[in-house]
């Protein structure tokens, strides 16, 4: 019952998101045909362009055509790119790249924050804690795209193992993708890692003072056992929750960083589309990001339910 209700809400959200994306774009000033073909295009060319992109239909019918196509992965044709390449094809080609970079950044942020947050919590009140928490506040304060450049400047130019520009697709070479994606992923991960480690530190400190931790110590269980199975295990619940909430900011970083590092993902596609006022591309990209956020939210909720038995009954 809860699952079907959840699926219905999810579907409705996607549908509502699609409507917002579509009609907001329609409301934008300017004629897409004229902006694609130029102000002085021949009328018969404009008419052909409109017919090709369904722009001659009434708006409601345009939406119906678009949404029914979108459900099958057909988002129409690009207005500007490669002589009207199907947008669905563009998205399908670039989604794995964005998924790779996003996941890479998420994993880096997870690893960094687990170390920083745990060390800070375990050394609470010492100089090490102050250092770690200061790094965390600094991390939130640095714009990720700027950090990306500084990383390139100081790491790639001095340590030639990391390429400073360009990206090897994970489908071509996984080690190459891991290496060429490292600096971009690190730039996206830094502000996330900062937020995550602050939450983890606070959660660990909170759990450490719970009575059940004292009870377990009173049973003579080793501190590493108590930390792993009890303190860390319970602190994971708020930690995973915050990761879910931050995914939408992480994807914002992905958009900028893809562009900065020349990574051919959905983000750089959307920025290209924005420059060309390529409506079908922008609509499809926005909708793809919506689905990614909803998908991760669902995953995080399921994960939280696994982690927190109290959340399962609800």
């Amino acid at each position: 019952m809860a699952a079907s209700r959840r699926a219905a809400v999810l579907l409705l959200t996607v549908l509502a998101g699609a409507m917002v994306v579509f009609f907001a774009m329609k409301a934008a000033p300017g004629d897409p045909a004229l902006s694609a073909l130029g102000e002085n295009a021949r009328p018969e060319l404009v008419a052909a362009f409109r017919r090709l992109h369904n722009l001659d239909l009434p708006v409601g019918e345009q939406f119906a055509t678009w949404i029914s196509g979108a459900l099958r992965g057909d988002f129409g044709r690009s207005l500007t790119l490669a002589g009207g390449v199907p947008v669905g094809q563009l998205i399908a080609g670039r989604l794995p790249v964005t998924a790779f970079i996003g996941l890479y950044a998420l994993i880096l942020a997870g690893v960094i924050s687990m170390i920083v947050g745990t060390v800070a919590a375990l050394s609470r009140g010492t100089a090490l804690d102050t250092l770690m928490t200061s790094f965390a506040v600094l991390g939130v304060s640095m714009p990720d795209f700027w950090l990306g450049y500084v990383l390139v400047f100081f790491l790639a130019l001095n340590l030639p193992i990391f390429p400073s520009y360009g990206f090897v697709s994970p489908s071509d070479s996984l080690p190459g993708a891991l290496l060429s994606g490292f600096l971009p992923a690190l730039a996206i991960a830094a502000p996330m890692a900062a937020v995550f480690s602050r939450v983890l530190r606070a959660a660990l400190l909170e759990v450490m003072h719970r009575p059940y931790v004292q009870v377990q110590r009173s049973l003579g269980l080793s501190s590493s056992f108590v930390f792993l199975h009890t303190i860390f295990r319970n602190a994971l619940i708020p930690y995973v929750t915050i990761i879910g909430l931050q995914v939408r900011y992480l994807l914002g970083g992905v958009v900028v960083i893809e562009r900065v590092f020349g990574i051919p993902g959905i983000g750089s596609l959307m920025v290209d589309g924005a420059f060309g006022r390529d409506y079908p591309v922008i609509q499809a990209c926005a909708l793809t990001f919506l689905v990614i956020v909803l998908g991760t939210n669902l995953l995080v909720d399921l994960l939280c339910a696994r982690l927190d038995p109290k959340a399962r009954g609800r």
Binding site: G17, A27, L251, G273, A274, C285, A286, V293, N297
Partner: peptide
């Protein structure tokens, strides 16, 4: 909830195009 389902930067980017 709907606006929260878009990445905030994507939402801003989208608005800039519109």
């Amino acid at each position: 909830d709907l606006l929260f389902a878009f990445p905030s930067f994507v939402l801003a980017l989208f608005m800039m195009v519109v």
